[in-house]
């Protein structure tokens, strides 16, 4: 099952991920990404891959667990 990862130190709060996939990405009061869940299905993967690739600082990845 694909697993979401985030580099919380790299995140700059550009928030494109939240706009693209609000069901898995959110942002906290300090402007840092929050993972609403870490496991996703293969069916969701293309959409969430595209959301992860909308991060300007490459803070988001999807790995195969």
């Amino acid at each position: 099952m694909p697993v979401l990862k985030a580099d919380f130190g790299a995140c700059q709060g550009y928030a494109n991920c939240v706009d693209a996939a609000p069901d898995v990405y959110d942002i906290d009061d300090d402007g840092v990404v929050v993972l609403l869940r870490t496991e996703i299905s293969e069916e969701e993967r293309p959409r969430i891959e595209e959301a992860a690739r909308s991060c300007p600082v490459n803070a988001l990845t999807i790995e195969d667990a």
């Binding site: 709060g13 550009y14 928030a15 939240v18 706009d19 942002i27 906290d28 009061d29 402007g31």
Partner: peptide
């Protein structure tokens, strides 16, 4: 300096 407000506004 307020990404959370940005998300809401968007």
């Amino acid at each position: 300096n307020w990404p959370r407000a940005l998300v809401q506004c968007r």
